[in-house]
């Protein structure tokens, strides 16, 4: 869900009520943002149960630190940043063979890998979705994160800058590299 498509009390009002021990208000924040957080985590870790665990950790961390939340930024941005960091922490700790550098340092892709591929046969829509899901999981985490926020969650680069704390040009480069790798993999499948 795009960050601003909400009805009812806005996030700032719900945060203020939560700080006054109105736990129902935080429940509304959960309802409002759970889908994005769970999906973001799912795209990052590729496992539903882990995704919900990470989403829960993110919400609980936000709840505990709510008094430190500064009202000059959006709650959603703050929450997504927490969730993103939880996912990265998980990837560092749990993903076999994936070390700190793999998560934190941009991989250098051969920009010429996207060779022209002529689709010999077209994959069905469902096949494409499945293959794309798997291909996203194979992206380096930083590309994956940027690609998911941009093209799966539909965020703008400005929103992504706020959430990830990375400048727009870097994010564009990560999204570009992600797109390129995914394009290459799907093209290979089509030509198989």
């Amino acid at each position: 869900m795009p960050l601003d498509q909400q009805t009812g009390p806005d996030d700032a009002q719900l945060v203020a009520r939560s700080l006054k021990q109105d736990h129902e208000a935080f429940g509304q924040l959960i309802d409002r943002h759970a889908s994005v957080i769970v999906n973001l985590a799912y795209r990052m870790v590729g496992n539903r149960a882990e995704a919900e665990d990470l989403a829960q950790e993110a919400f609980l961390a936000a709840f505990k630190a709510l008094s430190t939340f500064r009202a000059d930024s959006k709650f959603s941005t703050w929450l997504y940043r927490i969730a993103s960091n939880k996912c990265k922490d998980w990837l560092r700790a749990k993903r076999p063979g994936m070390g700190q550098q793999d998560v934190d340092i941009d991989e250098v892709l051969d920009i010429h890998v996207a060779e022209e591929q002529t689709p010999e046969r077209l994959l069905s829509q469902q096949q494409v979705a499945q293959e794309l899901e798997q291909a996203i999981q194979r992206l380096p985490p930083l590309y994956r994160e940027a690609f998911v926020l941009k093209h799966v969650e539909g965020m703008s680069y400005e929103e992504m800058e706020e959430i990830l704390g990375v400048n727009g040009d870097t994010l564009k480069m990560r999204v570009y590299k992600g797109r390129l790798q995914l394009s290459r993999e799907l093209a290979l499948l089509n030509s198989a």
């Binding site: 759970a34 889908s35 769970v38 999906n39 799912y42 539903r48 995704a51 919900e52 989403a55 494409v128 979705a129 794309l132 899901e133 996203i136 690609f147 093209h151 799966v152 539909g154 797109r179 995914l182 394009s183 799907l186």
Partner: peptide, 13 residues
């Protein structure tokens, strides 16, 4: 890639 990514099924919590 961009179009398919936007249509990926969303998981409901």
């Amino acid at each position: 890639v961009v179009a398919e990514a936007a249509q990926l099924p969303r998981m409901t919590p």
